[in-house]
């Protein structure tokens, strides 16, 4: 993969695209064919930074991680300039300021190589095809198109009209029930108040004129309950509900 840039001057510059600072660093090291365990840190740092400035001058977006790596490299470089502290036992390598970076690079490279193997597997798999999951609707009985013409549709329409017949024009008017909740509340309240011992729910709706009237009565009771004007009692489950006026204090 490469980033291709066409500058105003008309030159085309091709830059390899790097997945991250480790990828770039690994590229610089591998390109120079130097031993990864003995990275010439000064040279590599210089190259790394000049690559970053090239990217900057081309106005490429550079992820922050690239700059973190630049500072890590500079830090290692400066530590390399310092005299190596007296060795502790046999463990000279532990003093190498590059050690941690080398380990990271090797770890990254292992997975980079593994990802290349996966890429090959993917390529092989792409050569092979298998059935796509069926839409199970395909197994439903298909709707067969009938061999019909426009005239058939017209006959069908005629048939339907004949079935309906001339018909008698009926006008149905639906009247709005003139029961308001306020009205019903007043009515229910009046009845409950007049019976000190309370009144059964069924009694309240003993003469329903319509379904809406029962509903309105019920709503009125609920509303009166909410307002604390009445109280409702039930002796047993599903039994008669007794509604009583709350005595005003």
């Amino acid at each position: 993969m490469a980033i291709e840039l066409i500058q105003q001057s008309g030159y085309t510059i091709k830059l390899p695209a790097f997945e991250g600072p480790l990828d770039l660093l690994l590229h610089l090291i591998r390109e120079r064919k130097v031993d990864i365990y003995d990275i010439p840190i000064a040279e590599v740092t210089e190259q790394y930074i000049s690559y970053l400035s090239l990217m900057e001058s081309l106005d490429l977006n550079i992820a922050g991680e690239f700059f973190v790596m630049a500072s890590t490299l500079l830090e290692i470089k400066s530590r390399m300039l310092l005299p190596i502290p007296p060795s502790e036992g046999d463990n000279e390598e532990g003093a190498d300021p590059r050690a941690e970076l080398i380990e990271r690079l090797l770890e990254y490279e292992r997975f980079k190589n593994a990802s290349e193997s996966l890429k090959e597997f993917e390529e092989e798999r792409r050569k092979v095809f298998w059935r796509i999951a069926d839409d199970l609707q395909n197994y439903d009985a298909p709707v067969m198109p009938l061999n019909l013409e426009a005239m058939d549709l017209l006959f069908a329409l005629q048939q339907m009209l004949a079935d309906v017949g001339e018909g008698t024009e009926e006008v149905t008017s639906i009247e709005r029930q003139k029961i308001s909740l306020r009205m019903k509340m007043r009515q229910v309240w009046g009845r409950i108040k007049s019976v000190p011992d309370g009144i059964g729910f069924r009694e309240l709706v003993d003469d329903p004129k319509s379904r809406i009237e029962i509903v309105m009565t019920f709503l009125a009771i609920l509303e009166l309950l909410r307002l604390g004007k009445i109280k409702a009692r039930q002796k047993k489950a599903l039994g008669e509900i007794n509604i009583q006026a709350v005595k005003e204090q």
Partner: peptide, 19 residues
């Protein structure tokens, strides 16, 4: 057929996760 290939970033990441 149009079959997409995974990006390098995706391959790298899935490799790390797999191992």
């Amino acid at each position: 057929p149009t079959r997409t290939r995974m990006s390098r970033a995706a391959l790298e990441t899935v490799a790390i996760i797999a191992y």
